[in-house]
Amino acid sequence: MSDLISMFMPTWPMLAAFSVAAIILAVTPGPDMALFLSRSLNFGRAHGLASLAGACTGILVHTALVALGISVLIAAAPIAFLVLKIVGALYLIWLAIAAIRSGGNFAMANKATAKRPSYLKSYMTGLGINLLNPKVALFFITFLPQFVTATDPFAALKLCTLGVFFVIITIPVTAGMIFAADWLSETLAKSKWIGRALNYSFAAVFASFAAIILTAQARH
């Protein structure tokens, strides 16, 4: 049983670090949060939850694609995997800078028409906002591999575990926002410092990850 767990589970320190990053990602204002709040405010919480389910499905698809691609890359070209991790660190630095530059800006999605969509449409909209967003794909390609090593023969399995764990963390955090949609949307729109604090937290976490990654690679 312990061998089976070690195949799928990253180390506990790594999992703890990933959890912190996932929580901050979940509460950081972005297009997916705007969609969830907009659906909730305009059509009710059930539509907000449906769009959340679609977005989580998109995350799992991205995770599967990353796990497959990275596992092939590790087997075929360990040096290329090392380059990918370094590029990923630089990308995290870029994300940190972008978060600081954006300040506390948060814009709700456009008001929906009076016609109520189906739950399937809300689900598909949530799926599309993650699955068809190249920035999300690039983020998962560069972020998830930071939590595995090139010499780990079970890296693909651990990547899948991280993707599922990301969804498990995201659901309760984001669902809470959906249930507090009225208060949250008004607060984010009026209080610049809250959005700024979230973005600065986002920047600090990923700048730290980037520094750790680049420092570790420099020692090899």
Rank of each mutant, 00 (worst) to 15 (best):
A22G: 04
L127G: 01
A203L: 01
V72E: 12
A77C: 15
N199Y: 08
L198P: 00
A112M: 15
N199L: 04
H62P: 01
C160W: 15
N105C: 02
I59L: 08
F202T: 01
S185I: 02
L25N: 10
P29Y: 00
L25A: 04
E186C: 02
F166H: 13
L49G: 00
L41Q: 06
P134K: 09
D3H: 11
L49F: 10
R39A: 04
I213Y: 11
A22D: 02
M7T: 14
A109R: 04
H220F: 15
W183A: 14
I97F: 08
W12D: 00
R196E: 04
L68M: 14
A17S: 12
S102W: 05
M9H: 12
T215H: 09
L60G: 06
N133T: 03
T57D: 03
A112C: 09
W94P: 00
L84C: 12
Q217A: 13
S6K: 09
P31K: 02
S201M: 09
I194D: 00
Y119W: 13
S102D: 11
R45F: 02
L73F: 07
A50F: 04
A181P: 15
L84T: 14
K121N: 15
A207D: 10
V173Y: 03
F209N: 14
G176E: 08
Y119M: 10
R45Q: 12
L132A: 09
F143S: 03
L65I: 13
R116K: 07
S51D: 06
Y123E: 09
A22I: 01
I93G: 07
V27F: 08
I194G: 02
L41N: 07
A99P: 10
